[in-house]
Design a binder for these strands. Structure first.
Length: 482
RNA sequence: GGCCACGUGGCGGAGUGGUGACGCAGCAGACUGCAAAUCUGCGUACCCCGGUUCAAUUCCGGGCGUGGCCUCCA
């Protein structure tokens, strides 16, 4: 089956046909680095990581270029820098904020099993490209200079609004923004603006004498052009970026290059809510990736990155997702189950279940993938040899690996973390309890056996008795209560 | 006000013009000294009102509800 993707441009699922199968190119809007990434930021990062992995599987690792940018010039960064380092020159403070935040971001998403993109361009390293775009747009009549700003003239582009599916007339009718007096049209947007003294500034385009800095959208146009070319295959991001960010990127790039499209396929992940409400600092439900990984702030426990990743993939990427501790518990339970199913296996020949690939090829239907993982786990744990448990376990290992949950070894480590993360002293107590209890059971002193079991249970340790299928002996294991 | 999504069983969550998602919870059986765990099996659904159709949860129209965008936002 061919890869099919939902395209926001056409509002339907389409067969994916790359411009050049030898170099499939994808751009995804990355973070603006001024603060810890929150769990909503993690969604596109994970979703497009899955797509990246799938594209590499289909076209070959060397034939996919994935660019995910870092925006390190922006008003919020300036504000944060001034606030955090009031004693430093602004530009030094900005550098501290952006480099620190970028490091945090990389550490956070690495914990989520996200592969590094092929290139990770920074906005500040692409200022000349932005200046050139401005120059071109002014020269060809799509932009104009006013009060040291360069503004895009939306009336110069007949199909402006096509991605967001709205006409200029609609937007102006619904406008509720004060229009800057120097704008020709109310929807015109800034490509370049003057810097205030002390702010980061670069030599301006189009004969503007004052130092300036880029507007919000231009950085993506410049970085995409440099790393992927004027027209490329896939452009992704959160659905809230459709308008104005992506619409304006399209306007700038297409009008500068004279191309009918910027990217052939536009993909957008759905919005994330937290416990049924919009995530916001004022509601107090704002939650960062790092808090989920390292603190017990959400759901009274910390969560391994694999659990967060799975929770994100349990809902289809275009659907809204409600981020709840219940969802995380369910993800954790599923993961434990799968890890248990592959624990004793010895995976060799790499075979990713065709069902998994087929489900992903259908517009990244990860819930269907998860159903297949459950099926494989059931077979792997089946006692019926006709089900070929070892083959199923092997497939499960490779499917999980393919989806970014790590190698077989990593999976066993997850199990250790989720199940046996307990200090050595307590482990000794548990082992002794099991030995004593089994002795008591042999002596038919069930009162004593149950007392030991209850005592461990009160400590949060669950004993599990299982029959060894070969010998018929009862083997007792334990886990931290789920 | 304009535009765009979404509304599936107790819960989460796929999908489909006519029969099965899947998971959790629940119920039953096997196992167990009894439990738990595990294994096996089972049930219940498609917001409301019209329309199209032999047939609609699925397509179309209207309504209601929730969310998003129109201003920084993944």
């Amino acid at each position: 089956m061919a890869l099919t993707l939902y395209n926001t441009l056409t509002r339907r699922k389409e067969t994916f046909r790359p411009i050049d199968p030898g170099n499939v190119r994808m751009y995804v809007c990355g973070p603006t680095v001024y603060d810890y990434a929150h769990i909503g930021n993690a969604r596109p990062v994970i979703v497009f990581d899955v797509l990246f992995r799938l594209l590499r599987h289909i076209y070959g690792e060397k034939h996919v270029t994935y660019a995910r940018n870092i925006t390190d010039v922006e008003d919020k960064i300036n504000a944060r820098a001034a606030e955090e380092y009031p004693g430093l020159p602004l530009n030094d403070a900005i550098h501290l904020v952006t480099s620190k935040t970028e490091k945090q971001f990389h550490a956070d998403i690495a914990a989520l099993g996200v592969l590094p993109p092929t290139v990770e361009p920074r906005a500040t390293e692409h200022i000349p490209g932005m200046v050139r775009l401005c120059e071109t747009l002014v020269a060809n009549g799509h932009a104009y200079v006013a009060e040291d700003h360069v503004l895009f003239d939306v009336s110069s582009m007949p199909d402006y609004g096509r991605l967001a599916n709205r006409s200029l007339v609609d937007m102006e009718a619904g406008a509720r923004v004060d229009v800057a007096p120097y704008k020709k049209g109310p929807m015109d947007f800034v490509l370049w603006k003057p810097s205030k003294p002390g702010e980061p500034g670069w030599p301006s385009p189009a004969g503007i004498a004052a130092l300036g800095r880029p507007g919000w959208h231009i950085e993506c146009s410049a970085m995409a052009e440099q790393h992927l070319g004027q027209v490329f295959d896939i452009h992704g991001g959160g659905i809230d970026l459709v308008f104005p960010h992506h619409e304006n990127e399209i306007a700038q790039s297409r009008c500068a290059h004279g191309t009918p499209v910027m990217a052939n396929y536009w993909m957008h992940n759905g919005f994330l809510q937290v416990e049924g409400e919009k995530m916001s600092k004022s509601l107090g439900n704002f939650v960062t990736i790092r808090e989920l990984l390292e603190t017990t702030k959400f759901g009274d426990r910390s969560w391994p990155g694999e659990v967060l990743r799975l929770a994100m993939l349990m809902t289809h990427y275009r659907q809204p997702i409600d981020w709840t501790s219940k969802t995380l518990l369910e993800a954790r339970l599923n993961l434990l189950r799968w890890v248990e199913a592959v624990r004793g296996s010895d995976p060799r020949d790499e075979t990713v279940s065709p069902t998994v690939i087929r489900a992903l090829e259908n517009d990244l239907n990860t819930p269907e993938v998860i159903a297949e993982l459950h099926r494989l786990a059931r077979l792997a744990k089946s006692t019926n040899q006709d089900d070929e448990p070892s083959s199923a376990a092997n497939q499960l290992v490779w499917a999980l690996n393919f989806l970014g949950f790590g190698s077989h070894k990593d999976l066993l480590r997850i199990n250790e973390e989720l199940d046996h993360a307990i200090d050595a002293a307590l482990k000794t107590v548990i082992e002794k309890g099991i030995t004593d209890r089994n002795a008591a059971r042999k002596a038919k002193d069930f009162k004593e056996a149950d007392r030991i079991r209850d005592e461990l249970s009160a400590m949060g340790i669950q004993l599990k008795d299982a029959k060894d299928p070969a010998t018929g002996e009862i083997v007792t294991t334990w886990e931290v209560k789920r």
